[in-house]
Amino acid sequence: MPQFDPSTFASQLFWLAVCFVALYVLMARVALPRIAEVLEERSERIADDLERAASLKKEADAVVEQYEAALAKARAEAGAVIAQATQEIAEASSKQQAAFLAELTKKTDAAEARILKAKDEAKAQVRSIAVELAGDITTKLIGVAPAEEELAQSVDTELKGAA
């Protein structure tokens, strides 16, 4: 077996030492620091990003909270405004209704008064007409013009009986 030929041992050990020392120096001085740097950079970057994400999330939460508070306030305000408006409208409408009713009553009263007056006037007219008519008819029928007072008296009596 060539592995157990001692004549090659010196050469193998010598070149092993040369190559391994060279490799060690290359790894320790060149290759490994670069990898370590990149890995560190990445883990730092990731930590930074996570931190930033956390702070952004906190900010977003605060904004949402603010927004919700504003919304709640706006809702409350709107409710108050609506309630006030409703009350005002109700008040105004009840006032208007009362005023309208008062005017209506006034107008009705006035109209009734007018009607009564007209009725009275009409009644008075009816009486004078009746007296005149009775006078005329009597004159035509019997040719005698009755006394004005007598006519008025009998018409009054008739009117009273009719009433």
């Binding site: 010196a10 070149w15 490799l23 290359l26």
Partner: peptide, 26 residues
């Protein structure tokens, strides 16, 4: 006898391959 042999050659190749791989890939 410290001859540069086929064994030495592959040791050198290994060093070159490792270093090249790590340095170029990074």
């Amino acid at each position: 006898d410290l001859s540069f042999t086929n064994s030495s050659l592959f040791m050198v190749i290994a060093v070159v391959v490792i270093t090249t791989f790590l340095v170029t890939s990074m």
